[in-house]
Amino acid sequence: MTPKIALIVGAGPGLSAAVARRLAERGTKIALASRTMEANQALANELDGRAYRCDVAEEDQVADLFQAVERDLGAPDFVLFNPSYRSQGPLVELRPHDVETSLKVTAYGGFLVAQQAAKRMIEAGGGAIFFTGASASVKGFARSAPFAMGKFALRGLAQSIARELQPQNIHVAHFIIDGAIRAPGRSEADDKPQSLLDPDAIARSYLGVLDQERSAWSFEVELRPWVESF
């Protein structure tokens, strides 16, 4: 599948940018959404795409985002959900408001985005919705309960809607990124070469899943550096 219009939500300079560039090379129109539109404007200009501002925890903003993309480019047939919010610390010291924010951004936001995407893809007769997970999608680490709660919930959302939507020709996939991703300002320590995931390598895996024939769709892919322990 080569999408006509891709919407990347929670876009940034690392993985999102790598996916956007590879899709643009195929002729896909690119829409980039994040809480600060300015962060993606340069990339949008580079790819002749559009940048949008959206807080995924706000229902009205998500609905407005999809309406704007549909007005400017058309209804997206590929949507990638990347946002997450980290709140870390000992259980007894966590601020309930921060925990609520983590759940709203990481999981509730995924629901809002998937719902808007699915409405359009069902009408169009197909599409793809991908979710970016993390080690915390399957492992709850100490002092990181809010992040694990959000990522576990996002994985559950993806599993549920995959069973519902894939028979309607909508490919739903969840990617567990088990490790840190290389990005501007973040590189490997001299004593730990190749310990970070290359965003372009991840993007190639995403597009490999996107290219799958529906007789053999993957739901979940786990990616980690070769030096990362299981």
Results as ranks from 00 to 15, higher is better:
residue 114 A to S: 15
residue 187 S to L: 07
residue 96 P to T: 04
residue 67 Q to G: 12
residue 19 V to Q: 05
residue 57 A to E: 00
residue 18 A to Y: 04
residue 79 V to M: 09
residue 106 T to P: 01
residue 218 S to R: 10
residue 212 Q to R: 14
residue 93 E to K: 11
residue 34 S to G: 14
residue 88 Q to A: 14
residue 59 E to Y: 05
residue 124 A to N: 12
residue 175 F to D: 00
residue 38 E to I: 04
residue 165 L to F: 10
residue 103 L to K: 01
residue 96 P to E: 08
residue 63 A to Y: 04
residue 33 A to M: 03
residue 169 N to W: 05
residue 113 V to Y: 07
residue 131 F to D: 01
residue 156 G to H: 06
residue 101 T to E: 11
residue 12 G to T: 09
residue 79 V to G: 09
residue 174 H to S: 01
residue 212 Q to D: 08
residue 109 G to D: 02
residue 46 E to N: 01
residue 33 A to T: 05
residue 96 P to S: 08
residue 224 R to D: 00
residue 168 Q to L: 15
residue 116 Q to W: 09
residue 9 V to Q: 09
residue 13 P to Y: 02
residue 65 L to V: 06
residue 55 D to K: 07
residue 219 F to R: 03
residue 43 L to Y: 00
residue 22 R to W: 04
residue 96 P to Y: 07
residue 225 P to R: 04
residue 42 A to D: 14
residue 139 K to S: 12
residue 17 A to Q: 11
residue 174 H to E: 04
residue 130 F to E: 03
residue 169 N to F: 11
residue 191 D to G: 05
residue 14 G to C: 03
residue 22 R to D: 13
residue 120 R to S: 10
residue 118 A to L: 07
residue 101 T to I: 10
residue 1 M to A: 13
residue 12 G to D: 11
residue 201 A to V: 05
residue 111 F to C: 02
residue 68 A to W: 00
residue 12 G to V: 02
residue 78 F to S: 03
residue 141 F to N: 12
residue 54 C to G: 02
residue 118 A to N: 07
residue 225 P to G: 06
residue 74 G to D: 00
residue 64 D to V: 03
residue 230 F to C: 11
residue 13 P to E: 11
residue 29 K to R: 15
residue 136 A to P: 07
residue 165 L to T: 04
residue 140 G to R: 06
residue 136 A to Q: 14
residue 143 R to E: 14
residue 216 A to N: 14
residue 105 V to T: 10
residue 73 L to A: 03
residue 3 P to F: 07
residue 82 N to D: 14
residue 43 L to C: 04
residue 162 A to K: 05
residue 70 E to T: 15
residue 7 L to Y: 02
residue 69 V to P: 00
residue 90 P to Q: 08
residue 162 A to L: 03
residue 12 G to Y: 00
residue 161 I to K: 03
residue 178 D to T: 04
residue 88 Q to P: 00
residue 191 D to I: 09
residue 19 V to S: 05
residue 39 A to I: 00
residue 145 A to H: 03
residue 44 A to N: 01
residue 88 Q to K: 13
residue 191 D to M: 09
residue 153 A to E: 07
residue 167 P to W: 10
residue 186 R to S: 05
residue 162 A to T: 02
residue 130 F to C: 06
residue 201 A to W: 01
residue 135 S to W: 10
residue 91 L to T: 13
residue 15 L to K: 04
residue 163 R to E: 14
residue 26 R to K: 15
residue 188 E to M: 07
residue 102 S to D: 05
residue 208 G to K: 08
residue 65 L to R: 04
residue 53 R to C: 08
residue 169 N to V: 09
residue 63 A to L: 08
residue 127 G to L: 13
residue 123 E to A: 15
residue 209 V to Y: 07
residue 82 N to Q: 13
residue 41 Q to Y: 01
residue 112 L to C: 06
residue 157 L to W: 02
residue 31 A to D: 02
residue 178 D to R: 05
residue 22 R to A: 15
residue 228 E to A: 13
residue 167 P to R: 08
